[in-house]
Write a protein that binds this DNA or RNA. Structure first.
Lengths: 339, 339
DNA sequence: GACGTCCACTGAACCGGATAAGCTGAGCCA
DNA sequence: TGGCTCAGCTTATCCGGTTCAGTGGACGTC
């Protein structure tokens, strides 16, 4: 099926291409009567401006890129990304921007994708996830001068715009809550250690535990998968002075931990309290429902998208703090059985 | 930063734009020595062809669209879509195609997105998910003549290409397996009733239950969410002749069902056997691990992407059957306690 | 009535590639 | 030496928009 072009509209209306362009874009240069006539004809023959032609002459792609750098097996089960994407997408499509998605294997591949996207003018800007310590992507993006918003921080984002939430405060609040319940031996199952937010949480955990005199506080490392989360939990619960409470860096590991505890005959929350980061419907699915640190992730994504569009629009890069994750107590936390 | 164009390469090499184009695209018309010189210069100054310019002249977008029509809360927790996307994406990026994603509210909005994408030449083709009974999208896509591959069926896909898996066979096998274990009262918690694959499974369930003389077989309707899946389970387990086995149309509902059973004091698998559709890491996360019907979803996505690229390439629309879901028995199924 | 001003619109250039058609000089042969 | 072929380029045109520099006519002004 032949798709109509601006020349077709012009021919039908008996005017020039230029007049049609002015009419459709609300520019001055045509009379109101002509504008209405052109609009009617454009609608009637189903004209839509070619994004390629528009991109070529306007030097803008009308699209935003998101590269996801996690193996498929983790991407699939973590609700975080899909929730983020849906928020990003809602904001973008409201402003007629498209979202271009790519899954990459590692940060270097991600940098290569940015280079390609920018060189090919496929995107006007990108959203950067999973900020790392000494992240190579930051200087690469700065060098490219590709508009970007980093989802993560604070710190380590160079001169780029960023959006962050105060994980340190959320973790501190959580530890204080567990201590108020009477817990003294608190463990944390952390996510991938080279991610910046893992580092921030680890520092905050050490600080608050020292302040509250929790000498048995321990952090073990995992990778966000259920397997590793379960294994880490098994190790923790088998130790001589096993913890009475465990904080997990994501919901999937927390559920695996719950499962391991039940398998080992420990009651939750009687023998073990569990807190999950990233509250998702999964946390309410299991029994007992998990106490979790949550926030509105689609809103977070929408916020990031808005910020990116502002940067693309030429506004200066800002570092914006989003909502701090809130603790929602549910059935998986209680005072420890023994003192 | 000024991004180099083909004219910059031509100037550096002291040749015309045309020569550069021939050299870069492997066309005849330049000597091997010149080709190498042009290639070296292009690499050196970091030239990448503008996707917009190429799209404009080649009348092809170099992108494929995927519209997801489910509320964000369901999209987020179901691992299916993210796994599908990662498979689709792997195949597309290997062939230098981009993936454009959009989340839509309902089928009409989805049709509007297809119209816009096609009119604006933003995509060369689309992947269609969640086939419905009497799906309005099918005739709309046929009318647009937009290359498409429907993920779903068999049946109801009009003249469009489609990729389907034999859910009926998988469900039949599952029921036979449960009957072989000794179950006679089997229930099924189904997904959204207007989805085509739900309908196919429902028909297959009715057929096999009749053949095997399972008079108590019952299907209850849900919406893929944990809340509804849990509620449906509670209803089933409270009935006079409660089932000894339940088949769930997705993993999330199965986990919710497991949780409800445990909460009601029923042992799994002693008092209740559970089978989940869509095997995902979630199924191995809980205790007992769930017996599940699974398949390689990224491969499914990759297969669909390949098929779409073939259709875009002008090959005739085919209806292709993918791998049938395989039953993986785990701890959640066993012979029923009483006979 | 000559002139300036404004409006509504046209024509053409331009964005950055792909490609058909045209040109040029080298090599070969009669 | 003239004519032919052909590789190896150049030139021009096209894709479908945006935009800028005219242009012609209506109108007001002195």
């Amino acid at each position: 099926m032949k798709r109509p072009t601006i020349a077709d509209v012009a021919r039908h209306a008996g005017v020039s291409k230029g007049a049609v362009s002015y009419a459709l874009n609300g520019q001055p240069g045509v009379s109101e009567a002509t504008r209405q006539r052109i609009l009617a004809i454009a609608t009637e023959i189903g004209f839509r401006p070619s994004s390629a032609a528009r991109a070529l002459s306007a030097a803008t792609a009308g699209a935003v890129g998101l590269a996801l750098c996690r193996p498929a097996r983790i991407l699939g089960i973590e609700p975080f990304f899909m929730a983020l994407i849906s928020g990003v997408e809602a904001e973008l499509s409201a402003r007629s921007y498209a979202l271009t998605l790519q899954v990459v294997a590692d940060p270097d591949a991600e940098i290569a994708v940015y280079r390609r996207w920018w060189g090919e003018r496929r995107v006007d800007g990108v959203l950067v996830c999973d900020l790392r310590t000494d992240d190579r992507r930051i200087p690469a993006l700065e060098q490219l001068q590709l508009p970007a918003v980093v989802i993560g921080g604070p710190g380590g984002t160079g001169a780029l715009a960023s959006l962050w939430s105060d994980d340190a405060a959320a973790l501190t609040e959580t530890v204080e809550y567990l201590v108020a319940l009477g817990h003294r031996r608190i463990a944390r199952v952390a996510g991938l250690p080279d991610l910046r937010h893992t580092e921030i949480r680890t520092e905050a955990f050490a600080t608050v535990c020292q302040r509250l005199g929790l000498l048995d506080a321990v952090t073990v490392w995992s990778d966000y998968t259920g397997e590793e989360g379960g294994r880490a939990t098994r190790r923790l619960l088998s130790s001589a002075r096993r913890p009475t409470a465990v904080i997990y860096d994501n919901d999937v590991m927390a559920i695996a931990g719950l499962s391991v505890a039940q398998e080992m005959g420990l009651g939750v929350p009687a023998d073990l309290s569990i807190v999950a980061w990233d509250d998702s419907p999964l946390c309410r699915l299991v029994h007992p429902a998990l106490t979790a640190l949550g926030r509105d992730i689609p809103a977070y994504g929408a916020h990031a998208a808005r910020q990116l569009l502002a940067v693309i629009g030429g506004e200066p890069a800002r570092r914006v703090q989003d909502e701090t994750p809130q603790l929602t107590p549910r059935g998986s936390t209680a005072p420890p059985r023994e003192r």
